[in-house]
Write a protein that binds this DNA or RNA. Structure first.
Length: 109
DNA sequence: AATTTGACAGCGA
DNA sequence: GTCGCTGCCAAAT
C-alpha cells in the first residue's frame, strides 16, 4: 500500500528531485525526463531547474543527463566537461564526447 | 499577486 | 542532420 511510486505531495519538487537524484547509484545516469516522471511531473525542465537554484553538494547532478545521454551544456559548475570528468571517475563510459552510453549506464527506476 | 525564468522534451520544416 | 518553436509547471524575484 505504500504508494512509494508517488512522492509525498508534502514535499516540494526540490525535495523530491533531490531525493531521486541522490538515489542514482554510482556509475549510472538518469535522464531528466525520467526523474521528472518520478517526482510526478512530466516537466524535465524543473529537474535541472531545482538543482540549478540550489546547487546541493549532496546531489550528484552530474549523473543527470538528457534523454539522448548528452550532458547539460549549461552545466553550472564548470561546463559539461566537469560533468563528464566526474562520470568518468565513476566508471561511466561515453558514446561520444558529450553523450553518455545510455545502453550501459542508464539508471532503471 | 504577477511576471520571468529554467541544467528539457517533442515535433515540424 | 540541424534549426526553431512549443509545451509544461513550479519557484524565484
Amino acid at each position: 500500500m505504500n504508494t512509494m511510486s508517488v512522492p509525498s505531495k508534502n514535499k516540494s519538487l526540490f525535495t523530491a528531485i533531490r531525493e531521486v537524484v541522490s538515489h542514482i547509484p554510482e556509475g549510472k545516469v538518469a535522464t531528466y525526463g525520467q526523474i521528472a516522471k518520478k517526482v510526478g511531473s512530466n516537466d524535465a525542465r524543473k529537474v535541472g531547474w531545482a538543482i540549478y537554484n540550489n546547487q546541493n553538494p549532496k546531489v550528484p547532478c552530474h549523473r543527470v543527463v538528457k534523454k539522448d545521454g548528452s550532458v547539460a551544456e549549461n552545466f553550472s559548475l564548470g561546463g559539461w566537461q566537469e560533468q563528464k570528468s566526474r562520470l568518468l571517475s565513476e566508471g561511466v563510459t561515453f558514446s561520444t564526447e558529450k553523450q553518455v552510453d545510455l545502453e550501459r549506464h542508464l539508471w532503471r527506476i
